[in-house]
Design a binder for these strands. Sequence first.
DNA 1: TATTGTTATACTCTATAACTATA
DNA 2: TATAGTTATAGAGTATAACAATA
Lengths: 145, 145
Amino acid sequence: MATSPADPLTLEVVELIGTVVARYHQEYEEAAAAHALTGAQARVLGLLTLEPTPMRKIATKLRCEPSNVTGIIDRLETRGLVERRPDPADRRVKVAAPTAEGLATARRLRESLRFAREPLGELTDVERTLLRDLLKRMLGEDAQV
Amino acid sequence: MATSPADPLTLEVVELIGTVVARYHQEYEEAAAAHALTGAQARVLGLLTLEPTPMRKIATKLRCEPSNVTGIIDRLETRGLVERRPDPADRRVKVAAPTAEGLATARRLRESLRFAREPLGELTDVERTLLRDLLKRMLGEDAQV
DNA sequence: TATTGTTATACTCTATAACTATA
DNA sequence: TATAGTTATAGAGTATAACAATA
C-alpha cells in the first residue's frame, strides 16, 4: 500500500487504463462482427490457432463453465471453422481444432485488429520500450494471459 | 504507419495491453458480482452516479440499442437502486437516476475495484507520471470514455 | 413527420444441475 | 468413484422491428 486510494495521479492512470480497456473491447467486438463472429467465438478461435485444445481446457482458459464451451464450439463447427477430434489417449476427451478455413478466418481477424498497433505508432521506440517495462512491472512476474 | 505490424516490440506491448484488459475485466465482473450486479448493471449504475441520464443517452454511452437499456434499468429499478423520473421539459423522456441505496452501492463497488490501483502501487510517482503521459499520447487528444 | 421509450422476438453467453461414457 | 463432455433449463445482454405517446 505505497499509494493512497485517493491519490489523484493513481486515479488518473486508472481512468486512462479504463479508457484503453473500453476502446480495446469495442474494436475487438467490431473486428469479430466484421467476420460474422461474436466476441466469445473469436476468442475461442484465436485460442485454437495457438494449439488444438480439449473442451475442458478451453473452459479453464476462458474462465467459464465447460457447458458453455459446448455451445460455442457447436456454432463454430456448424460454420465449418472448427472440428472436434477424438483423443486417442483418452476416449472421454474431445480436442477442438481449427479447420483450414478457421485458420484463415483467425488470421484475417488478427490482421484487422488495429487497436494498440495504430495508437502505438504515435510513440517512438524508446517510448514503446518504456511503456512495455512499466506494464510488465505493473503486471508483476506472472504477466501471462 | 510509423510501425510495421510485425514489429516485435509493438506486438509485445499489444500483448501486455491484452493482459491488462483481461485482468481489468475479470476484476470488474467479480466486483460487480460481489454486489449481486452484472457487469452491464454495474456500468450503468456507475454512469448514473455521475449524472441522472435519459434512457436514450445511456444507450449512446453504452454503444448499444435503446431497447436493451429498458431491461437493464428495469432490473436495477426492481432492486431499488435506480428510479425513472419524468422530464418536465419533454414528456417523452424518462431520466434514470440512482436512489440513495443505488449511490451507496455504487460507492462500495468503486472502492472494491482494487485493479490498477494495487498494481500501480508497485510503481514510483515518477513512473506513474511517465505511464500516464504515455497512455495519454497513445490515446490521443480525445482520451475521454 | 420525427423522436423517446417500450414491447415482442430471436440469438448468444452465462451458470447450475443432471446425465452419458469413459477412466 | 471420479472425470470429460453434453443436455436441459433459466437469466441476462444483444439487435431488429413494430408500436404508443409526445414533439
